[in-house]
Design a protein around this nucleic acid. Structure first.
Lengths: 351, 351
DNA sequence: TGCTATCTTGTGAACGTTCACATACCCGAA
DNA sequence: TTCGGGTATGTGAACGTTCACAAGATAGCA
């Protein structure tokens, strides 16, 4: 049965003795089909192993059952080429694929340049060839207003991940500000009164918001501004290590570090080792990101887990809803989580 | 220009004053088009920003410009759910997407169950809806003869990754046997004479071949069989740690460990720390896999890098060639690489 | 009973390509 | 000059769906 290739809607219609349109209505769960007919059609579909042809559906109707997820070409390729891997992409695939699969959709990945000249053209081309039912923009494309506007003009639903600004699109994000504040409070509870935030790059909206949250939380705790040092290390191991080496060798050094990504947190671990600082007794470390490798660092890193896969899953769900005619436009905030491992713990009094 | 949605082949034909078929010939680089006409058509395509509609091409011609990559559902989901990530999937995406993009194809991922009942049905359904031009089977699906046969019967080119057995399909692989031997030789050169292979699971063909390579290399070096211990730890941290704790606490313990994956190598690192064995002075460790996290272990792991992204890229390239009528069926062996980091080094004489 | 209003079903056209085939063109050889 | 044979171009049909609309069936109400 299922082995007979190319069962078409016409075959099903003939088997039941109805027209192709009736079968089509059953497939699309349309109204106005007598219950007894619907059952017979469904039985025949199962028996013949009929699966609708996606291309034909797209040609006839307009829906392609495809969701396109767009990533930053340069950064993604750089990560791969440097052997760093792309946990972000992996997580996107997880959330996106599982959600799409549930709904009978498919996820297609695409890299496009961030160059303002190239981005719209490349996206246009992908749209023209694939005609997806929805598009997911991730940072930094999610911050590109022009792209979102273009998509809307063409009537393609668009979801932006990692920004909370809009009302016209689907926006999915976590509260970066609150996450940073939570990290600070975690360290405060464990007795730290001087800490540093190792920031990534101000080009990333998330970085900025985390810095804000960091400062606000310290202020709310009644601590001086100097109690919170902010240093910019551009997400890189080497830059971070250099900065930290100086910072942690000083007499009034911070006793807690909050790093904007795992790589810089690893740098902190590395420097602590170099300076013979025990982690977490002499130095506590919290990372943002929580890639799989952090479980195996020595000691394993305490980290804030971004809900990456959940954000993508939500984005897909909304886009699919919209393509079905529901109104799912809006902003969705997803919860982060502080995962306590071994780089934080009760502060030991200095000897 | 490029902003005008929905430019069709007919628009281009009208603009140049030729028929749609002539434009089609130009797009598909077909023969029998006068050079002057070809140029005019190409100019018009660029000017109008025409991009062929994939669904229509599929309907008309038969090619979908889609490559389907199939992974083990259970194992992949487990990895994701456990927070372990799927470096394998990430690497697949890297190799597959870049290759497909170059050729104007698209890559679609799919998870299917390994259950022998479900696998063919799920694959059938995906084929029916997507009608891909080629399918990539990864372990353990690549070892499922039935799947490959079914695809051939339906005329869908199929590439199998990670096995070297066939001649009727595209098979892409690395020499696992030689890789294990290379790891052994690396340790021998550094003065080790007793070593252990921490094997994953015999269900994986690669595991078996590595054990063979391990044994053969020791034998060729003129060492006793007892010089090479093989222990099965099922790819898991805990199981490996338990085994190693016993093995490394004995008086005639091995001084070198070769682990079948990174997770078990991390376990070795963990146990060495527990037993106060210095790595690499007291214990050398080599891992198979080389996920991004190994760079940050303390010390960073020496590892054999599988050419995952390269294998997938090659598989895509072959499938695309085949869909274009070329004969690219055959076996392709890709080189692995031993990446020396800090868990191996010249053996220090015991005190 | 007859006549709408609604539910149910069917029919031709359309989507944008490529395929198979037909036709027109060109060049050289008989 | 005429014919053959490749080269260049165009035409109708087909792919498998859904859409828009038409038509038949059924129910509701006077």
């Amino acid at each position: 049965m299922a082995d007979k290739a190319k069962v078409t809607i016409e075959d099903v219609a003939r088997a039941v003795g109805v027209s192709r349109q009736t079968v089509s209505r059953v497939i699309n769960k349309g109204p106005n089909v007598k219950e007894s007919v619907r059952e017979k059609v469904e039985e025949a579909i199962a028996r013949l192993g009929y699966i609708p042809n996606l291309s034909a559906r797209r040609m006839g109707g307009g829906r392609s059952f495809l969701i396109l997820a767009v990533n930053d070409r340069q950064r993604t390729l750089e990560n791969w080429q440097a052997g760093r891997g792309n946990d972000w992409v992996d997580q996107m695939l997880y959330g996106g694929m599982t959600e799409c699969e549930k709904e009978g959709y498919h996820l297609v990945f695409e890299l496009i340049d961030t160059d303002p000249q190239l981005a719209p053209v490349q996206l246009s081309n992908s749209i023209a060839s694939l005609r997806p039912d929805g598009i997911i923009l991730t940072p930094p494309h999610s911050d590109n207003e022009e792209l979102a506007r273009m998509l809307t003009n063409r009537g393609i639903p668009c979801a932006r991940v990692g920004r909370s600004a809009g009302t016209d699109y689907v926006d999915v994000f976590m509260d970066e500000n609150a996450a940073a504040a939570e990290a600070v409070r975690h360290l405060l509870r464990q007795g730290h009164s001087k800490m540093a935030f190792l920031a990534g790059s101000p080009e990333y909206g998330s970085s900025q918001k985390r810095v804000e949250g960091f400062r606000k939380a310290l202020q709310e705790a009644g601590l001086e501004v100097e109690a919170g040092v902010v240093a910019k290390a551009n997400f890189q191991f080497d830059t971070a290590a250099e900065l930290l080496l100086e910072m942690l060798d000083a007499p009034d050094r911070p006793t807690g570090i909050i790093a904007d990504n795992d790589e810089m947190a690893f740098a902190a671990l590395h420097v602590a080792d170099k300076l013979s600082l025990n982690v977490p007794d002499d130095l506590a470390i919290i990372s943002f990101e929580d890639t799989p490798g952090v479980r195996f660092s020595v000691p394993p890193l305490t980290a804030i887990r971004q809900p990456t896969s959940e954000m993508i899953a939500r984005a897909c769900a909304c886009l699919i809803d919209i393509s079905r005619g529901k109104d799912a436009v809006g902003s969705y905030e997803l919860p982060f989580r502080l995962i306590e491992r071994a780089t934080t713990g009760p502060r030991q009094p200095a000897l």
